[in-house]
Write a protein that binds this DNA or RNA. Structure first.
Length: 718
DNA sequence: GCAAGGTC
């Protein structure tokens, strides 16, 4: 009897194989794809694995104007870029998973996992009617759970399969068709191509950012005053009222207290503790890496994936903030202890290892943790993430940090002022997590009724501030809170918004005019796409399929009808929509004013030279243009000499005027002068002028690449 | 050319 077990990813295949038989043999297909062979009773079992979705939706007829007729095709054929690695896995499953006597679907027990296994069984193993298929249902990859799941297999839940299919189809219907319609409106109205996209997750995400921009724009700042005094010992004390919005009151306090001394009114002490942090889930790691190292969530995710595939850390795409006891902490610490730096901390661990687990859980994976295998030769950035994971893992086992707080109230002519100092009395976990600053202030030596000289009395006029813009880490947190996207896709969604030029800015995300116009446009024609309504709707509909209240066909037909209404609306107003989108796109690209005609200077892309340049928007009437180095940023500052924007470019970043000839005598630099013969090819050598000043280059460029600095010329010619 | 969701 031959049995084939299909898993979601190689690591779960390994765990399942080893759980079923400790003597399972690891094999490799075509030098790339791992699989396992084992014997159990009379059965010869082959454990193969997918790598996530192996099949993607694609239109039956790509030439159709709208896509409602779709079928599944291998992912590597549909998305040529990015899914190439799935090809070997599909081949391996096709080769190893044919003509078995029985099949087991052992992918993650969730909607996507169910579909991943279903498609693999249907299209790669040829199990169309599923009569030989059973399903393993497990919530962790521990041996106990897996054996139980194997012994108590259930029937494949076709409602769950249909739920997955409907999710894919509806996202395709809305996303691809509406994106296409928007791009078409631009090409109809302006005869230009603009890469645009909309979708169930990316559009509400953009909308959150636009909403914040509006709050900032509408914000009316209110003046307030902060009154503080500096007393003996350079201690800053703040007036007890905090923000004072009444100017008269602020002035009253100032006049009253001017030139008067302070008396210590009351001193009190209190104790507090700070618990250790919780173990990392993906969002937590992304957020911490952003705050500590400034890494983008995408970068952190890529590094975490590398560390995982290299065997140094656990599976990164988890929501769990819990470390289950089944993990064998002791042996992980023993191995980590071979590193001298880690050992210093591990040696101080309490004898009873109990992690400070967080609330969030994940059915399939524990929180991110080191495996114990010590890495070698990691790049600088990989090492940073690895150490962050290790120290977080260590610190969650330590006791809380303890603090003592001193609060003092001072009296100046009946007005109360106060200050607080906090000092650490027991560092606890903080001593073992080097990424947090520890508050440790000195308590001044004062007692109640002391008279203190006021050295300075200050009234600071301030303004209330609008809410802060999101950064990538705070946006990911917001998406988690609103349950938009998944842990695996949130960083990609944000990247996509940058890629489409909807948003810009790294420290703070700002929305471009194009992004704002997308939301304005879509909120008119399909409000449920800009809000989170579509995701909520989808969830309700999918739940309907799961519990037999509706069928996949009904839900998909409904979606088709909804999308068709939206598409009709967009087509009707195509001209207006297209014009506005393109114009807003151009506005986003305005970087200054043309010195020749006063028009707008815009950043453009030349497909011929595959490079960006700056040109006048009035082209061809005005032909003013400037070349720019790769990776140029336009700063808000302008050149003092000519008023053009200052650009930053290169590594390390340097700044210069957009006009590389700014401030130079133009008659000289445009005529390269001959200064000798090229030592490489014999052609004339020319003194040229570039962005970085004068240099010597061969006339035979680009065939001959000889260059040197003006100073080097003499020695090179010898 | 276009989505969102898995994964290396």
């Amino acid at each position: 009897m031959h049995e084939v077990i299909v898993c979601e990813k190689p690591t779960s295949a390994e765990k399942i194989a080893k759980a079923l038989s400790p003597s399972a043999k690891k094999k490799v297909y075509n030098k790339k794809v791992k699989y396992w062979e084992l014997k159990k009773g009379s059965k010869d079992i082959t454990v193969v694995s997918a790598v996530g979705h192996l099949y993607s939706l694609t239109p039956d007829n790509p030439k159709d104007k709208v896509y409602f007729d779709l079928h599944w095709a291998p992912a590597y054929e549909v998305n040529k870029r990015g899914s190439g690695f799935t090809k070997d896995y599909v081949r391996a499953i096709k080769k190893l998973g044919r003509n078995a006597d029985s099949y087991i679907h052992a992918c993650d027990y969730d909607t996507e996992g169910t579909l991943i296994g279903y498609n693999a069984l249907k299209y790669a193993c040829g199990q169309e009617n599923l009569d030989k298929v059973s399903r393993m249902k497990f919530s962790t990859l521990t041996k106990k759970d897996l054996l139980e799941a194997y012994d108590n297999r259930i029937e494949l839940d076709m409602n769950q399969v249909d739920t997955g299919i409907a999710r894919h189809v509806l996202d395709y219907y809305f996303g691809v068709n509406i994106s296409k319609a928007l791009m078409k409106s631009v090409s109809n109205a302006k005869h230009r191509f603009l890469k645009l996209s909309a979708g169930r997750v990316q559009t509400p995400t953009l909308s959150i950012l636009v909403e914040r921009e509006k709050e900032i724009k509408d914000f009316v700042p209110e003046p307030y005053w902060l009154i503080k005094a500096v007393v003996e010992g350079n201690i800053e004390v703040n007036h007890i009222d905090g923000k004072i919005f009444d100017r008269d009151r602020a002035e009253e306090i100032m006049t009253k207290c001017q030139g008067k001394d302070a008396i210590v009114d009351r001193i009190s002490f209190s104790n507090s503790t700070t618990k250790p942090p919780v173990p990392f889930n993906l969002g937590g790691l992304q957020s911490e890496a952003y705050n500590v190292f400034g890494f983008s969530p995408k970068k952190t995710q890529t590094i975490a994936q590398n560390l995982y595939t290299s065997g140094y850390t656990s599976y990164p795409r988890t929501s769990s903030q819990k470390l289950p006891e089944s993990l064998d902490f002791k042996s992980i610490f023993t191995q980590l202890g071979y590193d001298g730096e880690f050992k210093k901390h591990i040696d101080q661990l309490p004898s009873k290892l109990k992690p400070n687990n967080g609330k969030k859980d994940d059915a399939a994976h524990p929180a991110i943790h080191p495996t114990g295998i010590l890495p070698q030769g990691l790049s600088k950035d990989d090492k940073k993430i690895y150490e962050l994971i290790v120290y977080r893992f260590i610190s969650v086992f330590f006791e809380a940090a303890k603090f003592e707080t001193m609060s003092a109230t001072l009296d100046i002519e009946g007005e109360k002022f106060r200050f607080k100092r906090r000092r650490v009395t027991h560092k606890g976990w903080m001593e073992h997590y080097p990424f947090r600053k520890i508050d440790d202030e000195i308590f001044p030596d004062i007692k109640e009724d002391d008279l203190m000289k006021v050295l300075e009395l200050i009234s600071d006029e301030k303004e209330t501030k609008p809410p802060a813009r999101y950064n990538q880490a705070s946006l990911i947190k917001e998406l988690e809170k609103r349950e938009l996207g998944t842990k695996a896709t949130r960083a990609d969604i944000i990247d996509k918004l940058y890629d489409r030029k909807y948003i810009t800015g790294t420290q703070q995300i700002e929305v471009n005019q194009l992004g704002e116009n997308m939301i304005d446009t879509l909120s008119i024609y399909c409000n449920n796409l800009t809000s989170e309504e579509l995701t909520r709707d989808l969830q309700i509909k999918l739940d309907g399929i799961s519990n037999n209240k509706s069928t996949r066909r009904e839900i998909i037909d409904e979606g088709e009808k909804d999308v068709k209404v939206i598409l009709e609306d967009i087509t009707k107003n195509s001209n207006e929509i297209g014009s506005k989108l393109y114009e807003s796109y151009q506005e986003s690209n305005i970087i200054g004013t043309c010195p020749t005609c006063g028009g707008n200077l815009v950043k453009r892309y030349s497909p011929k030279t595959k490079s960006s340049f700056v040109g006048c928007a009035n082209y061809p009437d005005c032909t003013t243009s400037y070349s720019i180095p790769k990776g140029t940023n336009f700063l808000k500052k302008t050149c003092e000499k000519c008023g053009l924007p200052i650009i930053s470019f290169g590594k390390p970043r340097q700044r210069a005027c957009l006009d590389s000839n700014c401030g130079k005598d133009k008659t000289k630099i445009h005529k390269p002068t001959e200064v000798g013969k090229c030592p490489n090819c014999g052609k004339p050598l020319l003194k040229r002028s570039g962005r970085y000043g004068e240099f010597i280059g061969c006339k035979g460029f680009p065939k001959c690449k000889f260059t040197c600095s003006v100073d080097e010329l003499e020695s090179k010619l010898k």
